[in-house]
């Protein structure tokens, strides 16, 4: 019987949320193939949340223990997964920092290609198919994976998490084979406060004259920090007023940005500004004037006092990310 391997991620002995997305994606694929799902958890001890993998769709949960598996161990992880991977129909990774490194290692060891960063998975004619954004999201590619196994990594936050799959999640183990640790992960340090560039950040929080004074940009910096990899942008008006650096200016004479999420705070939406951000994937506008042109391009809007709305949003995002 066909089986799909879902590669989970843990950090500090706790399962990362993206793992549930991986299991759910693998489950959906398995249901189309009439297959079962094995989840593999690589760690140096017990992992919080591993018990929920059955509910998310894993028929079996395989533990791979090794004393060095507390942190990501590129060679150890790859050797372990490759040692069992050949018997699976498909292997699903997250296109996370770890998965982007690990999936091609495993694919190469299994002598097959790898579909990275997929946003959709399906089955056609018994073969796994995937959709994936290419050319900076300016086009969507559909591919068929003929390899055995089909190795894919899924883009985080694109596959819904199912929680009622009610599979057994039977515990099993994977023997970690001997491996040569060519690369050592020395540790993980907290991110530096290096500001992301507005053109590259996946999330951009921009402020305009509605912020009233330069010091109030602290509200946006807090919101950006809550989002994680987010940058703070600004409208031309406030850059000209000297509140923010020119490099932060979004708009026709500043930078053109296309982040996944653009949050426009206290920006009315002058044509010059819209030209610089209209290709953002999702636009959120927060403005006290319900007739502000920014609402015409925003996917979601909140009409209200930014000094009340933004701190609340920061709190809610923090709560969400703490989950």
């Amino acid at each position: 019987m066909a089986t799909i391997l879902a590669v989970t991620e843990q950090r500090g002995g706790a399962l990362r949320k993206v793992s549930l997305e991986v299991i759910s994606a693998a489950r959906a694929l398995a249901d189309q193939l009439g297959a079962t799902v094995d989840a593999v958890v690589l760690s140096n001890g017990s992992v919080d949340g591993a018990a929920n993998l059955g509910a998310a769709g894993a028929d079996q949960v395989l533990a791979a223990h090794h004393e060095t598996f507390g942190l990501y161990n590129p060679d150890g992880y790859a050797t372990t997964i490759a040692s069992i991977g050949g018997s699976y129909t498909a292997i699903v990774f997250a296109a996370s920092a770890m998965g982007r490194d690990l999936a091609p290692r495993v694919a190469a060891r299994l002598g097959t290609g790898c579909a990275t960063d997929v946003t959709g998975l399906g089955v056609e004619g018994g073969k796994v198919t995937a959709t994936r954004p290419v050319y900076a999201g300016k086009a969507i590619q559909k591919i068929t994976l003929g390899g055995s196994p089909a190795v894919v990594s899924i883009r985080p936050n694109t596959f819904p998490v199912t929680s009622g799959a009610g599979k057994a999640g039977t515990a099993g183990t994977v023997a970690v084979p001997a491996f040569t640790p060519r690369v050592t992960v020395k540790g993980v340090k907290a991110p530096e406060q290096a500001a992301l560039d507005v053109t590259e950040a996946p999330i951009v929080v921009s402020g305009g004259r509605g912020l009233k004074e330069p010091g109030n940009f602290k509200l946006l910096e807090d919101l950006a920090a809550a989002f994680g990899s987010a940058a703070v942008g600004a409208s031309r008006a406030v850059v000209d007023a000297g509140w923010r650096e020119h490099g932060a200016q979004v708009g026709q004479t500043g930078k053109t940005v296309a982040p996944t999420l653009y949050v426009a705070v206290g920006i009315s939406g002058a044509i010059q500004h819209l030209a610089g951000m209209r290709t953002s994937k999702v636009i959120v506008a927060i403005n006290k004037d319900k007739d502000a042109p920014i609402f015409k391009v925003a996917d979601y809007g909140i009409v209200g006092d930014l000094f009340e709305v933004v701190p609340r949003l920061t709190d809610e995002v923090k709560k969400l990310r703490a989950e």
Binding site: T112, G113, A115, T129, P133, V134, G137, K138, A139, I140, Q141, K142, I143, T144, L145, G146, G147, S148, A150, I283, K290, F295, K296, V297, A298, D299, Y300, G301, I302, V303, G304, D305, E308, V309, P311, R312
Partner: peptide, 24 residues
């Protein structure tokens, strides 16, 4: 190789937005 491109398409157009609500 094992990967075949079957199609390439432009992403769907943006849909009209909505006002979620007022205030915090």
């Amino acid at each position: 190789g094992s990967i075949t491109v079957t199609s390439l398409a432009l992403p769907p157009e943006r849909q009209a937005g909505k006002i979620v609500g007022e205030g915090p």
